[in-house]
Write a protein that binds this DNA or RNA. Sequence first.
DNA 1: CTCGGTTGTCTAGCGGTGCTAGCATCAAGT
DNA 2: ACTTGATGCTAGCACCGCTAGACAACCGAG
Lengths: 192, 192
Amino acid sequence: MSVQERKQRERAERERLIVATARELAEQQGWDAVTTRRLAERIEYSQPVLYSHFQGKREIIGAVALEGATELATAVRAAASAVEGPRARVSALAHAYLDFAERNPAVYDAIFQLDGGLAFAHEDTPAPLKDAFAALLESLGEVAGEGVHPGLFTEVFWAALHGVATLTRAGRLPPGDVEWRVNLLVDRLAVL
Amino acid sequence: MSVQERKQRERAERERLIVATARELAEQQGWDAVTTRRLAERIEYSQPVLYSHFQGKREIIGAVALEGATELATAVRAAASAVEGPRARVSALAHAYLDFAERNPAVYDAIFQLDGGLAFAHEDTPAPLKDAFAALLESLGEVAGEGVHPGLFTEVFWAALHGVATLTRAGRLPPGDVEWRVNLLVDRLAVL
DNA sequence: CTCGGTTGTCTAGCGGTGCTAGCATCAAGT
DNA sequence: ACTTGATGCTAGCACCGCTAGACAACCGAG
């Protein structure tokens, strides 16, 4: 028994190594550089080993996305709970969100831009993704305003943050003015 | 002279054919299906011909993006000028924008998601892109509110639309409720 | 302690990608 | 009519995601 357990442990360990290496490589050189060959070389195994853990590259991206979604949820909750009052909370949430996107661009892409084979907005959406949305909802639902469904309000506020995050990073919006943009979104969208 | 002119005309015609075919193929089967081989076969020339018109695939995507940006600007202006009053104008603009993104997903990606080698938010930004932003600014600048820079306001409003458009299409937001989302954005962000 | 069988990993290769070197062809200008 | 230059083609490079099949290492049974 113990032999099989050890092997299982080692296998799980190697799987974590694959995901961590893929993430590292993506952050360092972009997702284009994350090829199965390079990834295999970095973990010091041959290519087919990757396919004994994941169905394909898409599933590896998906694994990075789930890991990232968990961290995003944590970051958002931590920021929101660190301050008092709805205005400060929403503002802190927005900053935490944009900060995460800026500091982990590859992971953010894995979650929201790339095809990781993940389902969204269905009942079979993976838990980390649902939880990340829940983390937003916890703070944003409070400021939806009367007669506005908290979930729908959260979606719109989130979409606005997402737009700012992606357009900024893609060079479509000039950097800087983050503080200003967040203030505008919070002041106008949130009902305090 | 006339011979050279004819050749130049034919060459320009072929370039248009390449861009139109790339766009068509992308809309039909997605950008992944737009390979240089398939594209060459569709225009009934060999691959290297593509490279006598464009530096590479990226530049072809860029050409589709520029064409799309021009159309987007036109669509936005047409929608805005068709109605009276700031509220209706901004609402019409938002609908036109989201409509364009939904009906031309591949072109929208070429403009805003893919790497077409285009510069944004610099002085050497291609004219069609600057003009598309200008089209937004014309209507949105009016409702920025006092003390708020029209350009910065336009960027934020645009980012919100972009977020809604991309998240919806990627399945990250449930479809439907478009009317509702637009109303929320217009009512809260715009100062009427 | 040996021996089958299973389990795990690797080498090699398939069809595809973007891109290019170098050759053939054909038309224009002398 | 001949040369010359432009033009498009064939063939091939290095790389991609992915997989079949060979091979080695380890397990439990006798």
